Simulated scan of single mutants.
Amino acid sequence: MTQQDGAPQSHGHGHGHEHGHGAGRDHEHGHGGHGLGGHEPGGHSEADEAGLAEVLDLDAEVLHSYLAEVTHLLAELTTAAPPERILDLGSGTGTGTLALLGQFKGAYVTAVDLSASMLRRVTDKVGAAGIAEGRVRTVQADLDEAWPEDLGPVDLVWASASLHHMADPDRALAELMTTLRPGGLLAVVEMDASPFPRFLSEESEAALGRPGLEERCHAAVADQHASDVPHLGDDWGVRLAAAGFAVEAERRFDIRLTAPLPAATGRYAQASLRRLRDHLQDRLSGEDLAALATLLDGDGPESILRRDDLTVVAVRTLWVARKP
């Protein structure tokens, strides 16, 4: 769907207790999550983590209305008893942590991530936001190895773009069932098989050379993730039900931002396409790599930073499940 004022459109898939839309949203991650397990080959270099952090922060800035809509839905589902203890599973740079603290004014959050550098960013953001000391605790953990014993009990678990990183998601869901108090909620946000948004029109791609550049990039990413991150794109509703959760809401967000776009959109597109290029060097043709180089040339006339024809197209799906 397209909305001319730049706000994302979304539609829901009923699961009986789904509530109405709020005012807008995230990421995270969209890319909202980072890493929880150490199963991905090679890990992340310092430069790669810095690039990922940049994408996560820009994702939050550009897709902020989506996150606001998601947290508003969670507030509606917890009107009778707003969460006091929240677990942010795979916190990344802290987008979810800050959004949840903004929505639930009296809550305390435990942010868990595999990366110490990401958790430092969470702490820095919390401090810069003037959030009271003690409302956020950070925990570095490789959850594919062992779960810390002091994560629960919590009222709400936020898992945005994080569960697909787990080597054994069903084990993770069993751990979360234990971590949640009875009646507590688990909010899972995931993307489809290619986690990067799309930014270019067919006309824009044709002007660069052979049409279909982003389609080929996303197909290559999906092929790569099929082996490296096999749980990306899973039906989490089925997994949640099998783990004993009662799925109360499932909502697909078809995000399509058009002009006027947020000021950071060009930088978001540049950072995303740069990561695509860096991870697909051996999977793309010389022609496609040259087209990406043209787009990523910050001073070039066809740079992604100079374009006035960008859009932002992405898909995110939210599942909200309750522990009986």
Results as ranks from 00 to 15, higher is better:
residue 17 H to I: 05
residue 206 A to M: 09
residue 204 S to M: 07
residue 212 G to R: 11
residue 130 G to F: 00
residue 291 A to R: 12
residue 144 D to C: 09
residue 91 S to D: 04
residue 107 A to G: 09
residue 45 S to W: 03
residue 209 G to H: 12
residue 172 A to M: 05
residue 206 A to F: 02
residue 48 D to Y: 11
residue 284 L to K: 12
residue 308 D to Q: 13
residue 313 V to M: 06
residue 323 K to W: 00
residue 107 A to H: 04
residue 71 T to C: 06
residue 75 A to E: 10
residue 95 T to Y: 00
residue 107 A to C: 05
residue 312 V to S: 04
residue 85 R to T: 14
residue 72 H to W: 11
residue 56 L to W: 00
residue 198 R to V: 10
residue 275 R to C: 06
residue 101 L to K: 07
residue 173 L to A: 02
residue 252 R to M: 06
residue 202 E to H: 14
residue 100 L to R: 06
residue 320 V to E: 01
residue 196 F to M: 12
residue 75 A to W: 02
residue 152 G to W: 02
residue 182 P to D: 09
residue 46 E to L: 10
residue 233 G to T: 09
residue 279 H to A: 08
residue 111 A to W: 00
residue 82 P to V: 10
residue 294 T to D: 08
residue 235 D to I: 15
residue 102 G to P: 09
residue 205 E to H: 11
residue 186 L to W: 00
residue 55 V to S: 03
residue 186 L to F: 00
residue 123 T to E: 11
residue 10 S to G: 13
residue 231 H to T: 13
residue 178 T to W: 01
residue 128 A to E: 14
residue 233 G to S: 05
residue 224 Q to V: 12
residue 111 A to I: 08
residue 56 L to S: 06
residue 260 P to H: 10
residue 192 D to R: 15
residue 121 R to G: 03
residue 26 D to K: 11
residue 135 R to F: 01
residue 202 E to R: 15
residue 2 T to P: 12
residue 291 A to G: 02
residue 36 L to G: 01
residue 71 T to K: 06
residue 121 R to M: 05
residue 160 S to L: 01
residue 323 K to E: 03
residue 72 H to G: 10
residue 281 Q to W: 02
residue 181 R to M: 02
residue 304 I to V: 15
residue 140 Q to E: 13
residue 317 T to A: 06
residue 151 L to K: 07
residue 12 G to V: 13
residue 52 L to F: 09
residue 200 L to D: 01
residue 219 A to S: 11
residue 195 P to F: 00
residue 158 W to G: 00
residue 129 A to Q: 14
residue 5 D to T: 15
residue 226 A to S: 14
residue 33 G to V: 04
residue 188 V to I: 14
residue 267 R to H: 11
residue 296 L to W: 01
residue 236 W to M: 07
residue 178 T to H: 10
residue 227 S to I: 14
residue 240 L to A: 02
residue 113 D to F: 01
residue 31 H to K: 13
residue 75 A to C: 03
residue 216 R to Y: 03
residue 24 G to L: 05
residue 169 P to N: 05
residue 173 L to T: 09
residue 213 L to S: 03
residue 290 A to R: 15
residue 30 G to P: 07
residue 147 W to M: 02
residue 284 L to C: 06
residue 194 S to A: 14
residue 250 E to T: 15
residue 31 H to W: 07
residue 71 T to G: 02
residue 104 F to I: 12
residue 281 Q to N: 09
residue 42 G to P: 07
residue 124 D to L: 09
residue 226 A to Y: 08
residue 66 Y to H: 12
residue 286 G to D: 14
residue 197 P to I: 12
residue 14 G to C: 08
residue 22 G to F: 02
residue 238 V to L: 08
residue 103 Q to E: 10
residue 302 E to G: 02
residue 15 H to I: 08
residue 121 R to C: 03
residue 48 D to E: 15
residue 118 M to N: 10
residue 66 Y to R: 13
residue 214 E to H: 06
residue 2 T to C: 05
residue 58 L to P: 12
residue 212 G to I: 10
residue 290 A to G: 11
residue 219 A to E: 13
residue 128 A to H: 14
residue 277 R to H: 07
residue 280 L to M: 08
residue 123 T to H: 07
residue 6 G to K: 11
residue 240 L to F: 01
residue 94 G to H: 05
residue 186 L to I: 06
residue 260 P to D: 11
residue 149 E to G: 09
